[in-house]
Design a protein around this nucleic acid. Structure first.
Lengths: 326, 326
DNA sequence: TTGAAAGCGCTAACAA
DNA sequence: TTGTTAGCGCTTTCAA
């Protein structure tokens, strides 16, 4: 039960050669049906399971896919992971997953570790702060999700992004249509994609002939800790009748602030959807990100590139959908 | 940049033997400081990175740890994963993670795949429906978290569990102390641990001299889809003034029901904490599970067992803490 | 302190 | 169709 049986053991058991066993087990074409059946039976009876590490060293391939995300405790990425895992399991890929906590050095370390483990490819939600990804990746198949690599290299790598401009435009647009006239923003300025969300905000203002006022665009730190007082400022000092949060963490801070500070007729909009929003009992306009679709697409592109190395680079941009909570 | 450099290349470069390179790089004791320095410099200059797969096949060891959970989209397990990942990264372990969606056959498949990948050990939140885990695991180090293996084998494997009886007791106890007199339950009857949560409920009733009424203990399906109408029944037909949810999914369904059905002075209690509860604006008594601690402990026990194989089996039971949301 | 050689479990030419 | 042999990149005896 404990000592693993090898291909050699089966060879001894059957009197055949190692290579014959290997071929029979791998459904190689040139092998007689009888020996194939015999080998498979003996293998099964003796609980043989191939040592994937040995196979990997022999073939220079692996059924291992690396995934790098900021953190597990983030519903958006959780949903992406669930989607990828389903696809991967179907095709007998296993997943090596690492997190960065938005720290570039951990991202680099993770990529290196995965390469050393001979993964077949990597899916990365980058911190966006790596200078020379080409050098890090070499010719390893890779798909960037949600975050772009960096401005210089983004064209050279597969990517699956969300249309941030359009998404935030739609949210703000609806807030304005609902009657909001002065919409403040609390943004996270760490990532470039966040500025795209600001662009969408501005576009919506333009379409409604509302002048842009930089005084009501506030920047919160990444963990959203300081978003609450900023929300308070927007509501009291700036008399905003709407607040747009560029991500989940910020929204949560704003909502927490609003539990202590009631405001009538306030429009709340947010990028990022979250299932608990239906329980808040407050009207919120949210952007549902196609997380599952992103995961599926990422896996599809990656596995395709693994089997056919010289694919042209693919850039996919997915649309969000508006969801109204009441 | 692309062709990986091997230990043999460094041997050629320096004129030393392969084995010497290996020893120098692995800080073997019997090697002169000068050659060690030389080898390391050449290795670094040429961007040498060890092929972990080759090392693994040679040493019959690996720095890979397997983790099996029900799903990624579950805050409790997300927090456990984040904790494990931090510990693992510190000790240069990589994580292979698989999900089961509560399907036993996927759990079995995952364990087998991980064994074939020569993981050093596995951390498992089991579906709890595997008959013969001993056969599946062999002598591989393993730690079960949150869920017990099965009644028969649970003593033979390391486990880190939450004190479900005590936790639910505390919640219900507080609900009663707050004045509730008829507390209905919506439980998930799939897992044994859930029944422990019912036991805690009953213990609290006993302590308050309240007779147990099986009519107000309802069972919801695993996805919680039917919990909403059950909640409605408890409130209307059964005139409950309190509802206790045995898990997160069920709580969410109840809360959703309560948004359409206002009830004055209702006590709501739940196992499982969730950060959004502070935003609901409803008094809720929750049980905070020590997810981070569980992750840290699980990793600690596992890595200890990996380096010292013949440890006695450990069973850890962690306490939850009550959190009042308003 | 270093080198030579064997071997981990598997696959893949090349022969037979 | 099957067997023989070499080799993947590394570690690890055993010699020198």
């Amino acid at each position: 039960m404990d000592k693993r049986i090898t291909i050699q053991d089966i060879a001894n058991l059957t009197g055949l050669a190692k290579s014959t066993i290997s071929r029979a087990l791998n459904n190689d074409s040139k092998i007689s049906e009888t020996t194939r059946a015999l080998v498979k039976k003996v293998a099964k009876d003796n609980h043989y399971h191939p040592n994937l590490v040995a196979r990997s060293i022999a073939t220079h391939q692996s059924r291992l896919i690396g995934i790098i995300i900021p953190a597990f405790e983030n519903q958006f990425f959780s949903r992406i992971l669930d989607a990828i895992q389903s696809c991967a399991a179907n095709q007998h890929y296993q997943l090596i997953i690492a997190t960065t906590n938005e720290q570039p050095h951990r991202e680099i370390q993770a990529v290196k570790a995965m390469r050393n483990q001979m993964v077949a490819g990597i899916i990365i939600a980058s911190t966006g702060k790596i200078q020379n990804y080409h050098q890090l990746i070499g010719s390893l198949p890779v798909v960037f999700i949600d975050r772009v690599v960096n401005a210089r290299e983004s064209n050279h790598f597969n990517s699956i992004l969300v249309d941030n401009i359009n998404g935030s435009y739609n949210v703000v647009n609806q807030m304005l249509a609902n009657g909001a006239e002065r919409i403040g923003v609390i943004a996270n300025n760490l990532f470039q994609k966040k500025s795209n969300r600001l662009i969408g905000y501005q576009k919506a203002l333009v379409d409604h002939n509302i002048p842009f006022d930089s005084d009501i665009v506030k920047y919160a730190s990444q963990d959203g800790k300081d978003a609450a007082p900023l929300a308070s400022q927007l509501l009291i000092n700036q008399a905003c009748d709407g607040i747009f949060a560029t991500d989940n963490t910020i929204l949560k801070a704003i909502l927490r602030q609003l539990t202590t500070q009631q405001v009538a007729n306030l429009q709340v909009g947010t990028f990022d959807d979250n299932s608990y929003l239906s329980l808040i009992g407050m009207p919120i306009i949210a952007n549902q990100q196609p997380a599952t679709e992103m995961g599926i697409e990422a896996f599809k592109i990656l596995s395709n590139q693994i089997s056919h190395p010289h694919q042209p680079v693919k850039h996919i941009k997915l649309k969000t959908t508006i969801k109204n909570y009441t």
